[in-house]
Measured scan of single mutants.
Amino acid sequence: MAAGGDHGSPDSYRSPLASRYASPEMCFVFSDRYKFRTWRQLWLWLAEAEQTLGLPITDEQIQEMKSNLENIDFKMAAEEEKRLRHDVMAHVHTFGHCCPKAAGIIHLGATSCYVGDNTDLIILRNALDLLLPKLARVISRLADFAKERASLPTLGFTHFQPAQLTTVGKRCCLWIQDLCMDLQNLKRVRDDLRFRGVKGTTGTQASFLQLFEGDDHKVEQLDKMVTEKAGFKRAFIITGQTYTRKVDIEVLSVLASLGASVHKICTDIRLLANLKEMEEPFEKQQIGSSAMPYKRNPMRSERCCSLARHLMTLVMDPLQTASVQWFERTLDDSANRRICLAEAFLTADTILNTLQNISEGLVVYPKVIERRIRQELPFMATENIIMAMVKAGGSRQDCHEKIRVLSQQAASVVKQEGGDNDLIERIQVDAYFSPIHSQLDHLLDPSSFTGRASQQVQRFLEEEVYPLLKPYESVMKVKAELCL
């Protein structure tokens, strides 16, 4: 049975990233139509530049190519590739079939990587351009969430054990800070992308030097003109047959890092959902379990974690691919890159769409948070109580021993009897502590235990987050809708 299948058929496997999760716009960027249309555009740009620099290419040939950029006979191309065992030459023939007058000058002087690699770089750039505003929107939604809850005390956790208090907004800023680093890295790697350009079979530009009869300047002009037509500021000066596969490492490393950030955020949300302090959106008709109707599973956060793990592992592909590119190139890269580049971007696209949807509907339960604080705060307040007693004339050592005994009794009630923490009640009825009984409410005010959390939130948002989001103001209103 021949390899390949009808990918629109229910009898043929289709990647869930495309069929179930990723956005239509990201799927289109990695589609065959987008790819092969870009090949034709690159052939047109090459012909236009070659004509401008004096090669015998007519206006009629150029116009014929322009008129057929979208006229792609995919069936013919597939048949040609089956016959020739070469995808680029299959599309040269297919393009030439609908451009008979231009057929002889299509791909003039070029090698397969002229269309293959340059198209990949265009796709990487455009895919990054799709991700950047999506990530900015996630940051914006979380920034709104953090600002609104900047002063809401909550129990902090280290080692997932109760620690000092923080605020809900401050905790959210930990998430935002990681995503801001990801946004900066995505922008950097996007701006650092260079075009492969017009380089020939081993990167020496020998074929173009021959076409222009040894004119170095025209060869350099050709490279520059096509690079500018493709919208790049610069091209690699040095290439082998391909652009260095280190570029793929750079791009997928940034995406993998984004995956790590999203995994951490969504894990926190899942843990908070278990504590009943916070939940992701839950639709009115949504079913959490087929057997347990009360369940409210954090399905979206779980999906993000599941896909983020996949995204983090994909960076190993370009690392290994770059390491086995012998001399000017081997074909070890080809099949692998067809999979890992598309999957990385479709996965990143999915987790950003999902995280935006989550961040637009996060639900906080202040009463649950308050109750958990009441359970733990008495123990945390013991040092403040000791200091207040010393100020009232008591002995630190005597007070410490009193607190120690009462704390152990209260802990026994919590752990052995399943009761509430009654340390404060014990202190309130103990005559030894009568000098500070009137101060206990103040000493137990949760806001006095959150330090500068709310001020940190305000400063972080104003100095770091809002300036970073400013270039994306025009796209901030787009909502994230999930079908599944």
Rank of each mutant, 00 (worst) to 15 (best):
E425G: 10
C98A: 12
S151I: 11
L179C: 07
V254Q: 08
D223S: 06
A90M: 04
C483Q: 15
T166H: 07
Q177S: 15
Q241G: 01
E328R: 01
T354V: 13
A411V: 09
I385V: 11
V457S: 05
P10G: 08
P133I: 15
S9T: 14
S67P: 09
V247S: 10
E481N: 15
L307N: 15
E425W: 13
Q205N: 13
L468C: 14
R245W: 01
D87E: 14
S447T: 12
E60H: 10
G393K: 08
V254T: 10
S412M: 09
K276N: 06
E425L: 09
S454R: 12
V247T: 13
S395H: 08
T58K: 07
D87F: 00
E250D: 11
D216G: 15
I373F: 05
L319D: 02
L252E: 03
R338L: 01
D268N: 13
V465D: 02
K284M: 12
S253H: 10
P318E: 01
R329H: 06
L482K: 05
C340A: 14
R426S: 09
I287L: 07
R300F: 07
V465S: 02
R40V: 04
I105H: 12
E50L: 10
L444G: 03
I105R: 13
A291Y: 04
P471K: 15
A388V: 04
D215V: 08
V368N: 04
L108P: 01
R426A: 10
E383S: 02
V405K: 12
M387F: 09
L443H: 04
L482Q: 13
K391L: 05
E279Y: 04
M65L: 09
T154V: 08
D349H: 07
S323I: 02
E462M: 15
K264T: 02
V478E: 15
Q210N: 13
V247G: 12
I105K: 15
A260C: 07
M26S: 03
G231N: 09
D120S: 06
I287A: 10
R245F: 00
S15L: 15
A344T: 05
H442C: 11
E279V: 06
S434I: 09
L355G: 04
G4H: 15
L193A: 10
V219Q: 05
G109R: 00
Q455M: 13
K233Y: 06
C305A: 09
A411W: 06
F379N: 03
A381Y: 08
Q61N: 07
D144S: 15
I139E: 04
R303W: 00
M299N: 08
E280R: 00
I369H: 03
K295R: 00
H7I: 11
L165R: 03
C27Q: 10
R149V: 11
L211E: 03
A163H: 00
Q455C: 12
N185T: 12
C172W: 06
E228Y: 13
L222A: 09
A49R: 01
M312H: 05
G288C: 06
L319F: 05
F379M: 12
T111H: 00
M26T: 06
R37V: 07
P366Y: 04
V88Q: 04
R33H: 06
L46F: 08
A411C: 14
F30M: 12
R270M: 01
E25R: 14
L186N: 06
Q63H: 10
R329A: 01
L484Y: 14
G288M: 02
N384I: 13
L272D: 04
E277F: 04
M225C: 08
Q375Y: 05
M181G: 08
A143R: 05
S447H: 14
M76P: 07
S12L: 11
C304W: 02
R85F: 08
N185K: 08
I106M: 07
S140C: 13
I237G: 07
D182W: 03
R459M: 12
T111N: 04
V138E: 14
F74Q: 10
M312E: 04
A206C: 13
D422H: 10
E213A: 12
C172Y: 14
T119G: 11
L482C: 15
C99D: 00
F28A: 08
F212W: 15
N336K: 04
G8P: 14
I424L: 12
L443T: 03
L255I: 14
T450I: 11
A102W: 00
H97M: 12
L377H: 02
P467V: 12
A410N: 04
R337D: 03
D317N: 10
Q177R: 04
Q375E: 06
R426D: 09
P24F: 14
A110K: 03
D120P: 03
T227N: 09
G418R: 03
M316K: 02
L423C: 02
N118D: 02
L346A: 11
G231W: 05
A47S: 09
L443S: 03
P24K: 12
K415S: 06
I351L: 13
A49M: 03
E48D: 06
E464P: 05
E50Q: 05
A146P: 01
K147C: 08
W326A: 05
S151C: 09
V138Y: 11
A388I: 04
Q286F: 00
E328A: 04
V198L: 12
S290K: 03
K479M: 14
K147V: 12
T267Q: 13
K415R: 07
H93W: 13
S412L: 14
